[in-house]
Simulated assay, not measured.
Amino acid sequence: MDLATRATAPTTATVHRTGRLRTGGAELSWHANRTTTPVVFVHGSFDDHTSWDEVVPLLPPGVTAVRYDRRGHSGSSAPGRTVIHEHVGDLAAVITELSGGSAHVVGHSYGALVALMAAARHPELVRSVLVHEPPAFPLLTGDPVGEAMRDAARSHVVTVAEYIEAGRAEEAVALFAEQVAFGEHWRELFTEPQRAMLAANAPTFLEQFRDPDHYALDLAALAAGPVPITLTVGTDGPPAVRRITGILAERLPAAAVRTITGAGHAPHLSHPAEFAAALAGHLERVRLESVPVPGAGG
């Protein structure tokens, strides 16, 4: 992790702060609301920090919501090739520099993979994680039904990458959103400016696609580690990622699972109140589990 400089002092008792953080050669644009319990939000592919706009106002009192644009997205730069290991390093830097060295982490889709990797590699920084439908497609290997889902999704993603390479970013976003992530009504989730933002961030998706490690997860480290995990899943999301969430629940028996009825792959957009409630429940569970039991330990 390369911390070139501290962009600003860590978040203090202000309603909203913004800044830029230099890390690993990139500059990350960050935003923080409220105070005390720090929660860092990591967005998914094509997206940026604004995807959490409807969730942040619904968080419990006393939560510091730290959001940032992942490198190569919107307000953040991306020097050279962008791979998931750099995103994990960026998240570690955000926690270290902006959250006092420890934070709960919330991740969506690709951001969920980043959050889980950070929990496996930096348990001293990550208090807990709540992740929504991480696309860990290698977990479907050996599952005949799952492999068919994986192959169908990959065929679409290959075409998405080809569109981006050909300069057809808007078509790439539409194909990815409709066939891979959000379904045929995806335009109802995003305003026209947001759809333009997704297209502008398309080149970084191409870098993710080319990264051989972008789906890798160290499940052994997560299962044996101290970081509490909650997996959220929508009832109406893509079948592949719902199946992946089920496999993760089996492989991580200590993880809690929260189903968001009626939601798909983006509950923070379609069902922000329900997603915020899931996060509040997760934080309360973690708090209660960390409270010492009277008389324990002799």
Rank of each mutant, 00 (worst) to 15 (best):
Asp2Ile: 12
Leu3Thr: 14
Leu3Asp: 11
Ala4Lys: 07
Thr5Phe: 10
Thr5Gln: 12
Thr12Phe: 10
Thr14Ser: 15
Val15Gly: 12
His16Asn: 12
Thr23His: 05
Glu27His: 00
His31Trp: 07
Asn33Gly: 05
Val39His: 04
Phe46Ala: 07
His49Phe: 13
Ser51Lys: 02
Val55Ala: 05
Val55Lys: 01
Val56Pro: 01
Gly62Arg: 10
Thr64Cys: 09
Tyr68Ile: 11
Asp69Ile: 00
Arg71His: 03
Gly72Phe: 00
Ala78Gln: 06
Thr82Ala: 15
Thr82Trp: 08
Thr82Arg: 15
Thr82Tyr: 15
Val83Ala: 07
Val83Ile: 07
Ile84Glu: 00
Glu86Ser: 13
Val88Met: 00
Val88His: 00
Leu91Tyr: 05
Leu91Lys: 02
Ala93Val: 07
Val94Met: 09
Glu97Asn: 08
Glu97Met: 05
Leu98Gly: 00
Ser99Gln: 00
Gly101Val: 07
Ala103Val: 09
Ala103Asp: 09
Val105Phe: 06
Val106Tyr: 08
Tyr110Arg: 14
Val114Ala: 11
Ala115Phe: 04
Ala115Gly: 06
Leu116Ala: 12
Ala118Leu: 10
His122Ser: 11
Pro123Glu: 05
Leu125Gln: 02
Pro138Ile: 03
Leu139Lys: 00
Gly142Trp: 03
Ala148Asp: 15
Met149Cys: 14
Arg154Met: 12
Val157Arg: 11
Val157Gln: 12
Glu162Ala: 13
Tyr163Thr: 04
Tyr163Gln: 15
Ala166Trp: 04
Arg168Asn: 08
Glu171Ala: 09
Ala174Val: 00
Leu175Met: 08
Glu178Asp: 12
Gln179Arg: 14
Gln179Glu: 12
Val180Pro: 03
Val180His: 01
Val180Asn: 03
Phe182Arg: 01
Glu184Pro: 15
His185Thr: 15
Trp186Gln: 11
Arg187Val: 12
Glu188Ala: 15
Glu188Lys: 14
Leu189Trp: 09
Glu192Met: 09
Arg195His: 04
Met197Ile: 10
Met197Phe: 09
Ala200Glu: 12
Ala202Trp: 03
Pro203Gln: 01
Phe205Thr: 06
Glu207Pro: 02
Gln208Phe: 13
Gln208Ser: 14
Phe209Pro: 01
Arg210His: 11
Pro212Glu: 08
His214Asp: 13
Leu217Gln: 01
Ala221Asn: 06
Ala224Trp: 06
Pro226Asn: 04
Leu231Glu: 02
Val233Pro: 00
Val241Glu: 08
Arg243Leu: 13
Ile244Val: 13
Ile247Asp: 02
Ala249Arg: 05
Leu252Phe: 06
Pro253Ile: 02
Arg258Gln: 11
Arg258Gly: 01
Thr259Gly: 01
Thr259Leu: 02
Ile260Phe: 05
Ala263Val: 14
Pro267His: 07
His271Lys: 14
Pro272Leu: 07
Pro272Ile: 09
Ala278Glu: 06
Ala278Cys: 12
Ala280Glu: 14
Gly281His: 05
His282Tyr: 10
Glu284Arg: 15
Leu288Trp: 06
Val291Gln: 11
Val291Cys: 03
Pro294Gly: 04
Gly298His: 15
Gly298Pro: 13
